[in-house]
Nucleic acid binder design. Structure first.
Lengths: 226, 226
DNA sequence: TCAAAAGTGTTAAGTTTACACCCATGA
DNA sequence: TCATGGGTGTAAACTTAACACTTTTGA
């Protein structure tokens, strides 16, 4: 099995943990799980899993995400490796954290229930298992940095969205309020945020124009600043 | 030995690889090694090593750095985990990359020689082993992002430096030239970059004022933009 | 008819960029 | 005395921030 090289060196369990972000009614949320196995069964934790023998670490993260949400091809980004000796009280485990951004409406609620997973507001997180709080903290920091520089926010919205939704998303992620007119002025200058002729009538009597993120147009010209 | 939990899951070699940056005569450089063991002995690679049984992954990176340079307490930052199944042809290895910034004058040249390590200009890198080129690429991207937002550049300079040296450092990292007057105007507004009354007479006839990064002052007010 | 969310421009303040010459010194 | 790198200020262009009222419509 194992190659002739490196035999003298120790081996470790390698796990992945997913920080899964969603956005609902103006709030940024994270999908948390009541841990389904020992040790520490029943505590709040991120959804994780062990990397398999012939599986890329990135693929393991995607697999775990799919197990919990039913979704494939979700936007994921590595947050980093967590490798303190005693970070997991079950055994030595090196874990690689990944953050995922998805449209909360698309997740399979049945699968969530089967895994005892619940959406929690990012501002109201309970204490989490091991170093999972630090993982969330770090991925939120990364999300805040990327949101204004790259058009990742759209991953958290449905395909059609109103400008108010988009603004609330930015406010929830950045944790500060934004001037409506300045925000809309900036959006108007971004060629790949396109106004459609659909109208959303659910959130206001008057109705709000629905917009779309055009990825083709973005690929042509990636210039972006919001 | 191994705990009762997680026994059924596979284990992997875990390694660290160091992207060690230095700055010399206007050039940003990386410390590369002729790989001293099989497989692929003699190829250009980053300095790396396997994580030990009772060692934090972060500590393993610091140890490897110390082995190669003789330096402790060097600025290091995790770049990320690299976990493709076949990334290392010797065996399955998950590697965590770390970048280090240090004052090239302080490294132990004898240790470098013992490890067949050489400083290479970042713009003139040879092809590297496995995914090491990607590791360098990624850490350079991170360095470019952080250099203008946080005062990390000083880690690459001696304790006293001239403004021309500082500017050349920024130019080497960002890969673009900067207007001298605008650069100095900005530096002048940063309270923790302090002019000393020392003069450097080595690089010019006239002599240039030497400056110092005051970490105390930085801790008091971390506001920074260069 | 009124409550609730959508939509819309202008001005002042601040930031960034472009640009060229004199200074001090050692060889 | 001259070649070399050190040091200095201003004005125009651009970007950001602050700010309040009108529109539409369903209940």
């Amino acid at each position: 099995m194992s190659s002739q090289f490196y035999q003298e060196y120790p081996k470790f369990h390698v796990a992945v943990d997913c920080i899964i972000f969603g956005f609902e009614r103006g709030h940024l949320k994270v999908l948390l799980q009541k841990r389904p196995f020992e040790p520490h069964a029943g505590e709040w934790s991120l959804m994780g899993g062990f990397v398999r023998q012939d599986e890329d670490v990135d693929d393991a993260a995607a697999r775990v995400l799919t197990e919990l949400t039913g979704l494939k091809d979700v936007y994921m980004k590595q947050v980093g490796a967590f490798g303190s000796v005693h970070r997991d009280s079950g055994d030595r485990v090196v874990s690689v954290a990944y953050s995922a951004l998805l449209d909360i409406a698309r997740v399979d609620k049945e699968l969530n229930r089967e895994h005892s997973a619940y959406w929690e507001d990012i501002t109201l997180l309970p204490p989490l298992l091991f170093d999972h709080t630090e993982m969330v903290r770090q991925s939120l920091r990364m999300l805040r940095e990327s949101i204004s520089k790259r058009p990742v926010g759209f991953q958290l919205l449905p395909p059609l969205f109103t400008l108010t939704q988009l603004q609330m998303l930015y406010e929830a992620i950045l944790g500060e309020s934004i001037d409506k007119r300045n925000f809309r002025k900036r959006v108007a200058e971004i060629p790949f945020i396109e106004k459609t002729d659909e109208i959303d009538k659910l959130t206001s009597r008057r109705g709000a124009a629905l917009y779309r993120f055009n990825n083709r147009a973005y690929q042509r010209d990636k210039h972006f600043k919001l």
